[in-house]
Design a protein around this nucleic acid. Sequence first.
DNA 1: AATGAATGAGACTTCATTCAT
DNA 2: TATGAATGAAGTCTCATTCAT
Lengths: 198, 198, 198, 198
Amino acid sequence: MPKVTEEHRLARRAQIVAAARTCVIEQGFHKTTMADVIQESGLSAGAVYSYFKSKEAIVAAIAEDALSAIDELFEKLLASAEPLSPLMALERTIAHVVTVAEAPGGDVTRVAVQAWAESLRNEEIHEVAKGKYCQLRDHFLDIVRRAQADGTVDPDVDPLHIAQVMFGMIPGFVLQRLLIGDVTPETYSAGLRALLRQ
Amino acid sequence: MPKVTEEHRLARRAQIVAAARTCVIEQGFHKTTMADVIQESGLSAGAVYSYFKSKEAIVAAIAEDALSAIDELFEKLLASAEPLSPLMALERTIAHVVTVAEAPGGDVTRVAVQAWAESLRNEEIHEVAKGKYCQLRDHFLDIVRRAQADGTVDPDVDPLHIAQVMFGMIPGFVLQRLLIGDVTPETYSAGLRALLRQ
Amino acid sequence: MPKVTEEHRLARRAQIVAAARTCVIEQGFHKTTMADVIQESGLSAGAVYSYFKSKEAIVAAIAEDALSAIDELFEKLLASAEPLSPLMALERTIAHVVTVAEAPGGDVTRVAVQAWAESLRNEEIHEVAKGKYCQLRDHFLDIVRRAQADGTVDPDVDPLHIAQVMFGMIPGFVLQRLLIGDVTPETYSAGLRALLRQ
Amino acid sequence: MPKVTEEHRLARRAQIVAAARTCVIEQGFHKTTMADVIQESGLSAGAVYSYFKSKEAIVAAIAEDALSAIDELFEKLLASAEPLSPLMALERTIAHVVTVAEAPGGDVTRVAVQAWAESLRNEEIHEVAKGKYCQLRDHFLDIVRRAQADGTVDPDVDPLHIAQVMFGMIPGFVLQRLLIGDVTPETYSAGLRALLRQ
DNA sequence: AATGAATGAGACTTCATTCAT
DNA sequence: TATGAATGAAGTCTCATTCAT
């Protein structure tokens, strides 16, 4: 019989993750200190460490959140019955990226970029990233297969290769948005429509 | 005296950058310590600090190198007189990415991903990244303009938007190659050829 | 009511001491955390603190127990009417040490060694240790005096000095048993019989 | 070509060990903090950690020193050609213990008692303690064998058992000296002469 | 009375940088 | 000029104890 409800525990955990995310968005994983997270969360060091056993665990939690963010809503948006052309799927994904990025709580795409870098030297995060992105890519794979069935896309090309290229357009949008700042769903749509077969 | 000394200085500098790159490829910017770089370079702490005033300066040097790597050869490859279709330009760029990544001295694309993350909190690296990537994107812009002049690409679409999408395919290739590992210039070519108007 | 409650209190106290002893035998005083004791006892933090005002108080209680262990049974064994030679007294004491050490609840001699170390910087435990060991030594003193009266031992030597040497054989047995492991009451008896006048 | 001599390094190391020993004598292994050792040594944290990789390593070094202290001089004292009776060997050992204990630099017997306790939960220190004490006991074993050859000691008793009892008298002296304080080489000699066959 | 979540001082250790030699 | 030992601020994490519920 815990003194506090499971609800309370989850709320505290979320509070810590939110605080940590805020810090990471501003300073990155490595410049964010536990003292920053503790202060931002409004809890004590001991409290934070009773929810996460180490800084690494917090980083992993935030990274997983950020890597899931796109796919989470992707499922909702694209899992509808009506077939979606590759172009429309990309347009909706890009639009969703911006929605998620501009949601309150800070731009998670900044955390995702951190997670990409971290994946290169942290096997745990690498596994998460690989898993999440394969899952996301599989959604594009479904769309490609439907389009091949429709005859909209050449059925003789391996659909995985097409899904690779489709998925591969997302990080480039995220990166241009963060580093250069002149891309929007509208500019990307225009470019896509000019470049892609339809 | 000045000539030899200057050469010597440059050689030393390159030696330090190479050592630091090796460390960064394995451990990332933040887990790489100056002690690591000093050991790997075979120089003394004092020597290293006489060439770079801080760790941050070394990081900036490596980041700049890595962010330039793609564009450097891009210029050589694409600055030829004959017009290049968007598809071919992308194919050559992707092929070049892999060439550079597999060159001796370690996979610079790993450093580039580190640099993306670092750009988000380090204004100096941000400026470099933005500059290098705008420059690279401008090359795509040229190609798009020529294609619009040829009538191969719709002339009514803002060529920048098309260049954005083209440029935006590169980071996605790099990322899938590092995180998932199942993309090659050949799979990407197949996907591009299926997806793009020609 | 008071009777039952008092019994209850004593049982709880014993439960805590037993739990703490288990921890201390495994990890020593300092590596044992209150969290360990709380978990091992099956009580809550608040409960444990309602029986002992601090970790130090628990440590003191265990130390006192361990330092008393030898003497407790010593009294029973040696307080008989018949005179005991120094040799026999030592043999019985050594035998008793092993009995106590092998009793269920864990080897208290391990706690005693911890208490020796702790005595050097904790005045409270020092007082307890000094008191218990003087008391134990006094039993040897009685035996020496009887032996001097019998003429078995030289009456011209200060009996305290003889008791010091007799008492001084016990820690060496305990230590060799714990650190080296090749001493038993039998090997010690053989050594004593060869070495001591009888 | 190190910038500092080996001599210098050894001196620094000794400086740290001496500082740590001072702290440990006052406060024990666990209450001694690295900050204490750093302050007492007059060096910086970084300097201390460049000579010892952890607090545990310093503790091990001090423990080894303390456990060796008795045996070191034991060898010098007893390795003479002339045969030494068990009684004389014990007397000289006890005298040596006091000499060592009263040497400048602090009473190492206090450290030895700490090491006994630490041996029970630290396998590295346990191995050192076991090794050193077996070595010391072997010296008593030699003496016993000579005495058996002389006919001074019963040749039918296992000499190891006799050495166990002889060795076993030393910790008891050390402990009474530290905890009770009324033993001296003279009182112990008197007791030994009254108790032992000669 | 009992619980156990929360506190926060303080422990150990690292590492970018300097400067006496 | 080059060296690398030394610095010390700052980082991560622990744990004895308390007190709101």
